[in-house]
Amino acid sequence: MRPILLQGHERPLTQIRFNKEGDLLFSCSKDHTINVWFSDNGERLGTYDGHNGTIWTVDVDSKSEILISGSADNTMRLWEVRTGKCLYTWEFPTAVKRVAWSEDDKQLVCITEQRMGYQGAVRIFTINRENPTQQSEEPDAMFHPIASKATVCAFASPSLIVTGHESGKVALYDWQTGEEVAVNERAHSMVVTDLQLSPDRTYFITSSKDKVARVHDSRTLDVLKTFATETPLNSAALSSQKPYVLIGGGQEAMSVTTTSLRQGKFETRFWHLVFEEEIGRVKGHFGPINTLAVLPSGKGFASGGEDGFVRMHHYDESYFRAKPYGDLEVDL
C-alpha cells in the first residue's frame, strides 16, 4: 500500500474525521486551520479559515453540509462545508476541547475546558438547519461534570451523552437533567484521549494515556474488550467491515527526542476486536499518532500525527483476503 501524504498542516494534528460516505476527510491542527481533502486521491478541496488558536476538534454532520469546530481561541464555529464560509460563532470563557453531532444532525454537544476559575462544562445546542446563520446563543442544556474534567464526548443515544474524563472515568449523562446515569470510574487509570462510537452507537472504543484501549457497552459502560499496549495511546478507532480495531499513539511529544524511532512505536496498530490480539502494524509517522479515522467503507484509514502529516491509506487487495484466524469469520 502506498499511502497518500497530506501536507496541509504545519503543526501537530489534533483530530481527523471522515464524513458519512467517506469521500471527504476533515483534518484540524494546532496551526489554526481546518483542511478538507478528497480521500480517494488526496486532493485538498479547501480550508476553513477564521480560528485564531489551536483547533482541538471537528465534526461533520451526516449530510456533509455543516461542519462544527472547537478551538483554543474559546470559540466554537459552524461552517458551510461546501464553501468554507463561517456561518456562526459561539464564544465561551474557555477553550472548546471536543464537539460531536447527534445522529439526527439536529443537535451538537461540546466540552469546554476547566480553566481560569471556570468549571468545565458540557453544553448541548440545537442547530437551526433552515437558517444556519441564525443560531441560539444559549445552549439547550448545560451541566458540569463533577470531580474530574471531561476530555471527550459523544451522543450515545438521542438523550444520553457519553464522556471520557481526565481521571480515566467514563460516564453516561442524561443531558436534559445533567444526571449521571451510569459511570465506570475505573475504565482507565489515566486521561481518556479518544472516544469513537460504533456505527450503530451500541458500543464504543476509548484510548488512554494508561497504554490501554477498551471497548465499552454504550448502555452499561461495561468493559467488553481490552487492548493493552506498551505506549501511551492517543487514538483508537473501530474498523468497519472487519473485526479489527486501530490503535495509535507513541511516546509523549516531549520525550520524542530522547527515544529512538524504534522504541517510540509510532505505528498504527491493528488489533483483533474479539481475540484482543495484535495482528498487524503500519509504519510511517515520525512522531506519535494523534488521531485515527477509518473509512466508513472499510477500505482504508487515515492517521494524523504529531509530525504534522496526515497519511491516507487505501488497503491493498491482500488486506481483504487476509484471514489471520483462518476461516473463522466474525459477524459485525
Binding site: 500500500m1 501524504l5 498487524g280
Partner: peptide, 14 residues
Amino acid sequence: TTIERENVILKLTA
C-alpha cells in the same frame, strides 16, 4: 499531496 515512495506493508497475522 504526495504519494509515499515507499510501499508500506500491512501483514495481518494471528
